[in-house]
Design a protein around this nucleic acid. Structure first.
Lengths: 244, 244
DNA sequence: ATGATGGATTGATCGAAAGCAGTCTCTGCT
DNA sequence: AGCAGAGACTGCTTTCGATCAATCCATCAT
């Protein structure tokens, strides 16, 4: 069995709460029913109700909405350590679809089990709730990003944020990260055409700031990039004193 | 004392749950400490923590973020019956600012009182939680709106959504609604310049779809507008069978 | 080797929205 | 009455990003 302390969720939550022995055990028990899904086949459909919660163990997933004319807007990507359908299950609404970008491994979590775990370990509940609120803050940040930043800054900001999220679960650093997204995915999340994404990436590369090549995002000059993107590197990983 | 049954919050929640005598009483007790604020002065500042929750009784408010270069993105407007700072208080983060657009009247609600009310009346808790999730769904819808719809459709969609929300609390109908927003406000929420908003509104007016004049939004042809904006009129007010 | 496919890349053109500048019309003020 | 200011409106020019159309380059299947 995998050592729990290397799992993405554990790493993520540990950044905000130091988990006790008992809490680790509870976390472990949640991850029993493992399942795998293949890339491209929708996991959750827009309008579906009463679905399960999944904890993403490996691979990448995206949540999106489709417009009548076929245009797609990706709301967010989920990476290892993220929950899928948490909010939808708690609130019984699924207003968007969820599609695996790569083959993924998930742990199926029953709502009742999760609520039981929360009841036994309030600190765990707080930490998970915090993670959920962080996800929401990110959606708001994407709104600002798309509404008010130009394509270059917007793209840089998004990739930095993604890097920060990945770093939190041990899958990235200031150097860069492995990234399975195509330029079409980037277009759909940034509200740009894939062609334009290509030009933007070229400009960022020629500006010596970042390189995207062969499924690898490399931050060529992290500090310059931060400044260019107006990115606040603390906004995702600051400590929460009240939780410590 | 105001008759509770005419208050916006009561009307909104009643659309989803039929509240019992006891629940109405609890609701009434929450609305004790009335306060007023004047237009323009920020209620909540970005970064602030540990603030109160307010229930908006009358007037309009907007939540926004400011970028370093001074550009502003309004995340959403709040109208009578909406909570202010609910999420921030529960989750101890305030990542945006809140500013009254008009003079407003609010009821200050202490977190402890609200939680107490939830404990005594679970159905009320569910209803409020539902309202919160609806707010979140709206933010996602705005993301799609800004990311993938052109200015005209985007504007029409937004005004229809606003109309639907207002109708829910008795402040609007298929005919239109009173609206204190300037074209600058509309620009900031739609990710457009105020000048362009003006042109968009002219096109919509000349298309016989809607008129904005003197603080009044009039839907000149509701059905045509719905079709043009690809607006789903049920998405905010559909019944929740599990709550009835 | 030979295609077939999906993604990346580049060029050329077009259109939507921004930016700038100025006018107009209220409303409130003294 | 006269003025000041905010918001609404319009014309002109520029810029950003979309769209259309190729080409290129891996990987994979046969």
């Amino acid at each position: 069995m995998t050592d729990i302390e290397t799992t993405p969720l554990f790493r993520k939550l540990s950044a905000f709460v130091s988990l006790s022995e008992a809490e680790v055990t509870v976390l472990k028990e949640l991850r029993q029913r493992r399942r795998t899904f293949t890339a491209g086949r929708d996991l959750i459909h827009q309008g579906q109700s009463d679905q399960d919660i999944y904890l993403l163990d490996s691979g990448w997933v995206c949540s999106y909405k489709i417009l009548p004319d076929g245009l797609r807007q990706i709301v967010d990507f989920q990476i290892p350590g993220d929950f899928l359908g948490l909010r939808s299950a708690l609130l019984q609404t699924s207003d968007h679809s969820v599609e695996p970008i790569t083959d993924i491994e998930v742990s199926e979590v029953f709502v009742a089990d999760l609520l039981g775990a929360f009841a036994r370990t309030p600190r765990l509940a707080t930490a998970v709730l915090w993670a959920a609120s962080r996800d929401e803050a990110m959606v708001v940040e994407h709104l600002v990003n798309i509404g008010r930043r130009d394509a270059d800054v917007r793209t840089a900001h998004f990739l930095l944020e993604l890097g920060a999220r990945l770093a939190l679960v041990g899958l990235g650093s200031k150097e860069g990260f492995a990234c399975p997204l195509t330029q079409y995915h980037l277009g759909d999340v940034l509200g740009l055409s894939a062609v334009h994404v290509n030009r933007v990436l070229r400009r960022l590369r020629e500006g010596g700031m970042l390189t995207v090549h062969k499924g690898q995002v490399t931050f060529d000059n992290y500090d310059r990039l931060i400044a260019f993107a107006e990115f606040d590197p603390t906004y995702l990983d600051q400590e929460r004193p009240f939780l410590k």
